[in-house]
């Protein structure tokens, strides 16, 4: 099976005094569903950030989508990011854009044609049950709705990998379930690799998943 992520002896750190992840080795298969858990401050979000090049390993080799991230150029990093969808706990939507424009942003970046963009956005809005809200701005929506917009944005350009950092951390049960359904659908129907950083793995999930746990800078494979 192809590997989407291969990490060999990677160490992550924000400053010289403290190593957050210490010489970790792991890999993620293409099309798999992965959970990364750990206590607050254990380094799970830092590890996720390293997957899209927001933090570079201070040691070791990290290959994501065939791109070596320990020494990557801006152009190559941009190229990789165009094939990744990211979902954050705080949504990170562009407030001055309508939700329709937020969703089409990755498609514009990837240079899709106008008609394709229009069709894709329409279909996604329907999929996340926000078609009637297309012209609204993020701050006019509830937290759950904003996260659905973020999900639609992450899915819009059919990425090879979706990285989600506590995607349901701020949401109620109903909205959380919708998000898990969307992630599950992307994984089972589109074969998109999903990596989710979370405190708690949902019990209602109907996919096979791999579970890594971070403790004291070490990564353990649980299942």
């Amino acid at each position: 099976m192809d590997k989407v992520i291969v990490a060999n002896d990677i160490s992550l750190s924000y400053n010289a005094n403290e190593t957050i992840i210490n010489q970790a080795n792991f890999s993620v298969d293409s099309g798999s569903f992965v959970f990364i858990t750990g206590a607050s401050g254990s380094g799970k979000s830092t590890l996720l950030k390293s997957f899209f090049g927001a933090i570079k390993p201070i040691q070791g080799s990290l290959i994501v989508g065939g791109v070596e991230l320990s020494d990557v150029s801006k152009n190559k990093l941009n190229f990789l990011r165009r094939h990744i969808g990211i979902v954050f706990q705080d949504y990170k939507l562009i407030k001055e854009w309508t939700i329709e424009k937020n969703i089409m942003m990755p498609l514009i970046i990837n240079g899709y044609e106008k008609s394709v963009i229009q069709n894709q956005v329409e279909s996604l809005l329907k999929h996340v049950r926000l078609k009637h809200q297309a012209g609204k701005y993020p701050l006019e929506l509830s937290g759950g709705e904003q996260q659905r917009v973020a999900m639609a944005r992450a899915l819009s350009h059919n990425p090879i990998l979706i990285l989600a950092d506590e995607p349901t951390g701020n949401l109620d049960e109903y909205s959380s379930q919708l998000i898990w359904n969307l992630l599950e659908g992307a994984n089972t129907q589109l074969k998109t690799t999903i990596i989710v950083v979370t405190h708690r793995i949902p019990s209602t999930l109907n996919v096979n998943y791999k579970h890594y746990h971070i403790e004291y800078g070490e990564i353990y494979e649980i299942s």
Partner: peptide, 16 residues
């Protein structure tokens, strides 16, 4: 800054 950062996360080149 925020808009540029978010666009950067999705691989937008600096000119875009």
């Amino acid at each position: 800054n925020e808009r540029m950062s978010v666009m950067g996360l999705f691989g937008a080149p600096i000119w875009l």
